[in-house]
Design a protein around this nucleic acid. Structure first.
Lengths: 337, 337
DNA sequence: AATTGTAAGCGCTTACAATT
DNA sequence: AATTGTAAGCGCTTACAATT
C-alpha cells in the first residue's frame, strides 16, 4: 500500500489537495500560514508534505505574488577591481543572509558606466531588490535605481539621505589611524590613494586630511598622491615620497599597498627602519608580508550579511536602518614600529 | 493624441493585443518568432513593442515553459578559498556568457560538505543548470547533481566520463614547467602543495611527479610537501626544504607561494640567488612581487565565459563539448633566473 | 496553405462565498 | 465565529480550431 502511494509523484498543490481530500486553497493556507486555517488540517497537510518530499514551485509563487525572492548584487568588472577579494567575500556574506531568509542571489556586472545588464535585471523583474557593492561619486547605477523605484542599498557612504547605506566609517577610521601614527612619532606622512571617482577614496582621503590640516605644517602636497591607478603611477609616487623624505606611507587599499611594497623592495628600502607603511584596507597578502603591515581591518563577510539582511528587511516592509555603520579595527603590525 | 497613447502602460501581451486588435497568441508568436506568423503582423507588433518599451514578464514565461533562464554557480566558502580571486574573476566570465544569451546568474555557496543550499536551488527549480567551480576528489555536490538529473558542468578534471568538464590541463602544464626548470639547471626541485582532497592539487602534483620519476635520483620525499594548509605548515616545509638544500621551490598556487615568499624573506634567503621560486598558479601579487615570480598563467575570465556558454549549449540541447581544455602560458620571470 | 484566434495550462495566491 | 471551498487571476506558451 505504501508503495502505491509513493508511486504518485506529488508536484503541485492540486496533487496534495486530491490526496488529502481538501481544496488547493486550504493546502496553500496550511503551508503559508496565511489566512484562517484549522490547526488539525494544518498539521495534517504539513506532515503529508514532509513525507511526500513536496517542494512548492517558487516560480508559480513568484508569478502569483509578483515577488521573486531574489536579491540582485551588482559587481563592478573594472579591471583594477577584478582581483580584489572584497567583492567575493562580501558576496558570500550576502548569500548567507539570503539563504537564512529563503532568498537567492542573482549577480550582475557593470563595467565602468555600462549599466545595461543592471537595467535588464530590473526591467525583467528578476529580483526584488539590489545591492550596489561600490559607490562612485557620480553613480549612474544608483541614479538609475532611484528612478526605477526598486528597493536598493549601497555599500558606501554618501551625503544623499535618500540612499540606504551600509558601510564602515572610512573617514573616521582613517582619521584615527593617521593620528595614531602621528602620535607614534611620524611627522611627514605620505598618502597614496586611488581614483577619486570612488566615494570610498574620497572618504579615506578626507580622514587623512582632517588630521593633517590641524598640524602646524598642514598638508604637504608633495607627498600626497591621489588618483593613482597604474603600477607606473605608484612607482613614481613612491620615488617622489622617498625624495621628499617622508617617514611613513599610508596606502589607500591593499592592492596599492602591495605595489608600494614591491617598489620599496626594489629600491632596497627597509620597513620599518627606513620608512613606515600602513594600509587603509587589509588583506591576507599584507598579513603574510614580511614585515606584516599595519592596516584597518573590516569584517567584509559580516558587511555582506548585514547588507543582505537590511535589504530583505526593506523589501518585506520591516523597519530597516537607513545607515548602518560597521566597526573596524586598527591592526598594529611591525611595519609601523 | 500621442500623449493619450503613452498614458496607457503596457504591461502584458493582453495590453498589446488589445491595442493592436490582435490576439494574445499572435502577439506572443510575433515576439518569440516561434510558430507561423505573418511577416507584416510580426513587424507591426515588434515596432509597437519597441515604442511602448514593453518588457515581457520572464517569470510568467518561466512558468509556462518550465525554464528559468538562470544559471547556477556554486562557490566554495571554505576559509582558505575566500581570498582567492579565481572565483570572482571566473564568475565575471560566466556573467558575460550568460548576459550574451539572455540568462542570469544565481550564486550559491557550499561550505565543506554542506551542500544544502545547492540542494535547495535545484529542488526549488531556480536554475536550468549548474556550474561547480571546483572539484573535490570525492565530490558530494557532483554526486548529488548527477542523481538529480539537472544539467551541470564542473571546472576541473576528472576521470569520470559522465561529467562535462572545463579546465586547464594542469597536469601537463605542471609537467612542462617542471621540466623547463630542470633544463635551466635546477636539480633538487622541492614542491609545496595544498590539500589532496582537491582534484586540482592531485593533477598538479602528478605533473611534477611524472617528470621527477624519470630522473636518476627520482622523487625526493624530503622536499615534497603535500596537504599543506596553514601558514605554520608552510613555514615548516620551507625550513625543511632549505635544510635539504633544494635549489628550487614549486608552489601549488598563488596563496601558498606568497606565504612561501614571506617565509623566505623572513629567513633572509634571496631569490633567485639562493633559491629559485615558481608557482603553478598566477596572481597579481606574484607579478608585483620583487622579484616577479615565474608562474603558470590561465585566462580565468575566459574559462568562465566558456563554462557559461557550454552549459547554456547543453541546456538548450545544442551540441556541446564534453571536455574543454584551455590553454595556459608559462610566464618566465626573474625568480627562476 | 498561410495566418490568426480560442482555450487550456503552467502552479501558485487570495478575495469572497459557502459551509459547519 | 471558525474553517474550508470556489473561482479568478498572475502573464505567459502552445496545441488545436477557425478563418481567410
Amino acid at each position: 500500500m505504501k508503495e502505491e502511494k509513493s508511486e504518485i509523484v506529488i508536484t503541485s498543490l492540486d496533487d496534495i489537495a486530491r490526496e488529502l481530500g481538501l481544496s488547493k486553497s486550504t493546502v496553500s493556507r496550511a503551508l503559508s500560514g496565511k489566512g484562517r486555517i484549522g490547526a488539525q488540517t494544518k498539521a495534517r497537510v504539513r506532515q503529508y508534505v514532509k513525507k511526500a518530499e513536496y517542494k512548492p514551485n517558487l516560480i508559480a509563487r513568484s508569478l502569483a505574488q509578483s515577488k521573486t525572492y531574489n536579491l540582485g548584487v551588482v559587481l563592478p568588472a573594472d579591471s583594477d577591481l577584478a582581483e580584489k577579494p572584497f567583492f567575493q567575500v562580501f558576496l558570500l556574506g550576502v548569500c548567507e543572509a539570503a539563504s537564512a531568509n529563503d532568498y537567492d542571489v542573482v549577480v550582475t556586472v557593470v563595467v565602468e558606466k555600462d549599466i545595461s545588464a543592471l537595467k535588464n535585471l530590473v526591467r525583467n523583474k528578476k529580483v526584488d531588490g539590489i545591492i550596489l557593492t561600490r559607490l562612485l561619486v557620480h553613480d549612474y547605477a544608483a541614479a538609475y535605481l532611484k528612478r526605477s523605484g526598486i528597493p536598493f542599498l549601497v555599500v558606501g557612504s554618501s551625503s544623499d539621505e535618500s540612499l540606504v547605506q551600509v558601510d564602515t566609517d572610512h573617514e573616521s577610521a582613517c582619521e584615527n589611524l593617521t593620528s595614531l601614527l602621528l602620535s607614534m612619532g611620524n611627522r611627514r606622512m605620505a598618502v597614496v590613494i586611488g581614483s577619486d571617482e570612488h566615494a570610498v577614496n574620497i572618504s579615506r582621503y578626507r580622514g587623512y586630511a582632517k588630521v593633517m590640516e590641524n598640524r602646524p605644517e598642514g598638508i604637504c602636497r608633495e607627498i600626497v598622491f591621489q588618483n593613482v591607478g597604474s603600477k607606473t603611477a605608484i612607482d613614481k609616487s613612491v620615488e617622489g615620497i622617498m625624495k621628499e623624505g617622508a617617514d611613513c606611507i599610508l596606502c589607500g587599499d591593499d592592492i596599492i599597498c602591495s605595489q608600494v611594497l614591491s617598489k620599496l623592495n626594489a629600491m632596497n628600502i627597509r620597513i620599518p627602519e627606513d620608512i613606515r607603511v600602513a594600509s587603509f584596507y587589509d588583506s591576507a597578502h599584507l598579513k603574510y608580508n614580511n614585515p606584516p603591515i599595519t592596516a584597518l581591518e573590516i569584517d567584509v563577510k559580516e558587511l555582506g550579511v548585514i547588507a543582505g539582511q537590511s535589504l530583505i528587511d526593506k523589501i518585506s516592509g520591516k523597519p530597516f536602518t537607513r545607515r548602518t555603520i560597521l566597526n573596524y579595527q586598527i591592526a598594529l603590525k611591525k611595519s609601523t614600529q
